[in-house]
Design a protein around this nucleic acid. Structure first.
Lengths: 231, 231
DNA sequence: AACTGCTGTTAAGATAGTGTTAAGAAATGA
DNA sequence: TCATTTCTTAACACTATCTTAACAGCAGTT
């Protein structure tokens, strides 16, 4: 079972890379590095990290453009790391959708505190946060799911899908949004893969998958999860 | 309707107070000031601001304690403002639940960008529109419809049609306009499909479809929905 | 009374959307 | 390396939905 938080570091300076990677992985995070903006965007799509650390000074694409591209399909937390201290740089990055902006130099403790804050904001890894409805319980911080008290094993994708729905319980999430969030922006319009995963999830958490109690289909639109009763 | 964003500034230095207040209220925010930690906590409770700006260096209570007290009952966004640049101060404040940490000096543009980011993070600031009349409720953000408290299932087209009428409740929408909006411009003048869908909707939401209470027919013109009572 | 124009209702075939299964590919872990 | 799990794709069955057509009802008019 993989409970590690995934972090994508987009940074071209290799010494900074190894410095950040060392301090983060030493604290239980899994870090993946992209040395260019292009690589960063594609890794964000394929790797689906929990947080992205983005250096604005990249060799190929301007960091703001990376941010723009990411935000066109994803709402993954982005913490911008920059040597630029000018106010207008910060304002631009934040208004493009960055969740935080740290100026170099900074210490590892601050970085990790800001990562924790970002995770809290993304409402998923927040400690103690729980989805509960009827016999189903989802502990977001532990990435654990229980059905009538006994543990349910979901694969990585199944967990992502179910927790995405649970975080937005009561609301309809469109197929397109779900596909974008989990499989990234470069998918054809075919939702087959989503249907298969939903069938697998339902087989694991629903007593009678043909008459679901937790995840409902809104035909032609998407899926909607039963409202969280724990709040 | 008051759409102004409310900001609570907890800061004892009056010159900073007036400086921040001036720049924020000049940009459409409503600012309330507390000159001490105690006052800040009680104002947070009574005014329910959207964002709190908290200076750590207060005369009466330590800023971190203010934060602790706030977080014991509230999840209002808190942006900490501090002259302390030490890493451990930032880490402590962020881990106590602060949403951001800005070190003095900072410009008004950055402050406002960080406020915007905080507002984005707390998506409590968007209530979601509702149509309500007699026993019928339509929650547009959840795409849900309730009749006397129990859920009503509408198909895609039925939902489009009903929400179109609800968004224009009290006004007559012509057949042509409705057809254009839902079936596109390339339809013949035949409204059969619209009549069928309206019959299906009425069967689902009206007690007696022959004497409708929600959607009225204006013969020769179109349909009109009963006025929204929720505003 | 019969006709006309309009709307509501019902039913059935056509269509599109969804669920399920299984098999091979890819990734993971020992 | 091999064994196991997970992911993806394709085929097919099934269901819900959409559309069309036929008809009933209800004014108002001739």
């Amino acid at each position: 079972m993989n409970t590690k938080i995934n972090i994508l570091l987009i940074e071209d300076d290799k010494s900074i890379c190894s410095y950040i990677t060392a301090s983060l992985s030493g604290n239980g995070y899994r870090v993946i590095t992209a040395l260019s903006g292009k690589e960063g965007v594609s890794l964000a799509a394929s790797f689906c990290p929990d947080v992205i650390l983005l250096d604005l000074g990249l060799p190929d694409i301007d960091g703001c453009d990376v941010l723009r591209q990411l935000r066109s399909w994803s709402s993954i937390s982005v913490i911008v790391i920059s040597a630029r201290v000018e106010e207008q740089d910060k304002v631009m990055a934040l208004d493009l959708g960055a969740d935080d902006y740290i100026t170099k130099p900074f210490g590892p403790a601050e970085l990790m505190a800001r990562i924790r804050t970002s995770l809290r904001h993304s409402h998923s890894a927040m400690p103690g946060r729980v989805y509960r409805a009827a016999g189903l319980e989802i502990y977001f911080d532990k990435r654990m799911i229980y059905m009538e008290g006994s543990e349910v094993h979901l694969t990585q994708i199944e967990y992502q899908l179910l927790s995405l729905l649970a975080e937005n319980s009561g609301r309809v999430l469109t197929y397109k949004f779900i596909m974008n969030t989990i499989w990234g922006p470069y998918t054809d319009g075919n939702n087959q893969i989503l249907r298969v995963n939903m069938a697998n999830i339902r087989r694991k958490i629903e007593k009678n998958p043909a008459q679901p109690q937790y995840v409902f289909t809104e035909i032609g639109i998407g899926y909607r999860m039963r409202e969280n009763e724990s709040v």
